[in-house]
């Protein structure tokens, strides 16, 4: 009986593993396909979408850099995304901690206003933001684009930070004050180190949003030298033609930094994901 039971258990776990592995493969395949397709010749790719490359054509990467101006776009994307994330982290950390830890007049109203930002579809702001920036001659400016990304990311970031900050034990704050620490010390020596997991989550989420953002970058960056990666990737599509293999190479170039950022932060992200789940 025991044998049958343990056999059934083994079979069950095997089945679960097979299903999960199949799902993983299903998710991984597009990335693997993109990577090996980026090394195929254009006509080979068009003739057979799924076949492996016969010869490795690394020159697709050179074409990608040249055609899509991926080098300039890469630098632009890094500058815009890093600035956006830095500004957003700073504001979200301070605002979120204050909302989570302190009671003051108008707190609910302010917090609700921030949260309402999550309900506004950003695309509806495309034209008004463009007009506003044009009046002040602020379009075609990477820093301004970064500020816009930071503004769009703030509601979500403040929501996450507030939820997290409210879980930090009050004793820690009190101990710091008893030891002679001021508000600055409490924020940057107590709250900041404790908040690392949630700040990592916010970093990766907002970095991904800024890195992949398309419509605002398309409209606000009118000069070729200011275009970001998602815009550069469209250059492989002509009016009636598509250059697929250099586009795959371009996609690989655009994807790798995101994967790297994810691997750097992934442990913290998982901590951050569950951190706010159980209070106390």
């Amino acid at each position: 009986m025991g044998k049958i039971e343990s056999g059934l258990k083994k079979f069950g776990s095997l089945l679960v593993n097979v299903i999960i592995s199949a799902f993983s493969l299903f998710c991984l395949f597009p990335v693997v396909w993109m990577l090996y397709s980026s090394l195929k010749e254009e006509s080979e790719f068009k003739r057979n979408l799924l076949s492996l490359p016969i010869q490795l054509h690394f020159e697709n990467y050179l074409t990608a850099v040249k055609t899509g101006k991926m080098d300039t776009a890469f630098v632009n994307s890094v500058l815009v995304s890093v600035t956006a994330v830095a500004v957003l982290l700073f504001i979200a950390f301070l605002a979120g901690t204050i909302f989570g830890r302190y009671v003051f007049k108008g707190k609910t109203l302010l917090y609700t206003m921030f949260l309402l930002g999550m309900l506004i579809p950003v695309h509806s702001l495309l034209v008004p933001v463009f007009i506003e920036l044009k009046i002040f001659s602020l379009n075609n400016n990477r820093f301004v684009l970064a500020l816009i990304y930071a503004a769009f990311g703030l509601p979500k970031a403040i929501f996450l930070m507030t939820t997290y900050a409210s879980t930090i034990p009050r004793e820690l704050e009190e101990a710091a004050i008893i030891d002679g620490g001021n508000t600055h010390d409490v924020f940057f020596q107590i709250f900041l180190p404790i908040s690392k997991p949630i700040l990592s989550t916010i970093t990766i989420l907002s970095f991904l949003d800024a890195w992949n953002e398309f419509p605002f970058s398309l409209i606000l960056m009118g000069k070729p030298e200011l275009k970001t990666l998602p815009i550069a990737l469209t250059y492989f599509t002509g009016q009636y033609s598509v250059d697929y293999t250099p586009m795959m190479a371009g996609l690989a170039i655009a994807t790798l930094p995101v994967v790297i950022v994810y691997f750097i932060f992934h442990k913290k992200i998982m901590e951050g994901m569950v951190a706010g789940a159980v209070k106390g």
Partner: peptide
């Protein structure tokens, strides 16, 4: 300033709406 077909239409719609 070159963009591709579909994106060009998005850009132009914005330019038209903002008269720029």
């Amino acid at each position: 300033d070159g963009s591709v077909h579909d994106d060009y239409q998005t850009i132009m719609m914005t330019y038209m709406a903002s008269d720029s």
